[in-house]
Simulated assay, not measured.
Amino acid sequence: MNKKPGFSPRLIAMALALGAAASNANAGVLAQGVLEIKNFFLTDTAGTPLKESDFAALVANHNTDAFAKLNGVTVSDSRSDNVYPYTMDLPQQSVGANPYGENDYTHRPPIYSTNYARTDTFLSGNSINYDKSDTFPGSGSATGVTAQVVGEVSLNTTGEATTQANLGLQADFVFVLPTTRKIRLQFDADDYLLAFLGPLAKVPGSTAFASSSWSAALTGDDGTSYTFAPNGVLDAGELLDPCSLNTSRSRLINGVSTYSCIGSFAVESPTLTAGVLYQLAIRHTISTDADKLVPEPGTLALLGAGLVAGMFGATRRRREQA
């Protein structure tokens, strides 16, 4: 007795789904970078926050700028001020169908969404104790500085997207000390990077890239030149450097690459001379980039249709032979 030839409903459904995939050809390209600095203080060598009276002169300015670009459309903005205690909240820069709101620093899983590019920054707090005098432009106790930056791009159709956000935690922090001494920088950090190419992204051609960078450069009129750029190795003057805040992740083939660095950081300056003008420049940057190519919709449709036709053709031949 001959059995009727046939194919499982599951196999037929798979072939039909492949043909239907031509309707959106979802490649799922996603890149995200989030760098959060919290509890940032300028302290003495015992870890106690510096006071206004620890400076003979002090000028501090902070600034931020960001842009997001999707398929040739760019939005950008910048802020700068020197008011203490301060909050500097740059409006989110967003292009496309962005589903996320203002100041969303959530870490994304490797799941694609709509087409969008977004970036956002936030800065608030005091890094030293102000005694409410008129000596310097500010007042209040040291609460620690919070600085957050995110850049994110997502593509599920052919296109390109890029973002960059820069935050001067205390850019152009210019000061003079009344006594010769060392100072410390200490803070907590959470650095997260994601680069993802979905299973239907065309390779070669599609790319996902995310990078972070953080550094503090100290220079002085006496020739002092020292840079703290955390890399996970204890270099000269560094007290805590558990992981790198200067790194990147990328994908040129299908799959996901992630990076996570969570820890406390601390560095001690060289001996600083009384009466000398010094500048502390802190830079905090996130960049993301994505390009997406997908198989031509017609190719996927023909492939799915070909599988279905081939399956039913084989069924017919088996019946004729029977």
Rank of each mutant, 00 (worst) to 15 (best):
A20H: 11
D235Y: 00
K202V: 03
T162A: 15
D291F: 13
D222T: 06
T45E: 12
T299Q: 07
T143A: 13
V59P: 02
H62G: 12
G28W: 00
P9R: 15
S76M: 04
T219L: 05
K4P: 12
F209C: 10
Y192G: 03
K292T: 14
Y105L: 11
V149F: 00
L185P: 03
L70P: 05
T299H: 03
N126D: 13
G275S: 08
F67G: 10
V150W: 00
D291A: 15
Q186N: 14
N115S: 08
T299R: 07
V145T: 09
G159F: 01
K132T: 13
A171P: 09
F55H: 10
A165D: 02
N254A: 12
N61L: 12
G151R: 01
G159E: 00
R251W: 00
L167Q: 13
K132M: 10
S287N: 15
D65C: 10
S213R: 14
D89M: 12
S206P: 04
M311V: 01
L252P: 01
N2P: 15
I111S: 12
S154T: 02
A301Y: 08
T87H: 11
M1R: 15
T162E: 13
V34R: 07
V75H: 04
H284R: 10
S215D: 08
Q92A: 11
H284V: 05
M311N: 01
S212Y: 00
L18P: 07
N63L: 12
L277W: 01
P91C: 09
A15T: 11
L239Q: 06
F40W: 07
D131R: 14
A161S: 04
D131K: 12
M88Y: 04
R319H: 10
V203M: 07
D190P: 01
A195M: 09
N156A: 13
S139E: 15
G205M: 00
L18D: 03
L197W: 06
L50K: 05
L245K: 10
L307P: 03
K132Y: 14
F196C: 10
K132S: 15
T106L: 04
K69M: 04
N129Q: 11
L177E: 03
V153L: 05
A195N: 07
N98H: 06
T224E: 03
F173M: 10
L16P: 08
T162W: 01
L169W: 02
A97S: 13
G223K: 05
L300K: 06
L303G: 12
A290I: 06
D81N: 14
Y116P: 12
K51D: 14
T87M: 13
G72W: 00
T162M: 06
T64H: 09
W214S: 15
K182F: 02
N26V: 09
P204V: 04
K132C: 15
Q170T: 13
V75R: 11
S244E: 02
R108C: 02
T157I: 11
L50T: 04
G223W: 01
H107M: 07
L245P: 10
T48S: 15
L90R: 06
A13L: 15
V59M: 11
F265A: 09
D134R: 13
N2R: 15
H284G: 09
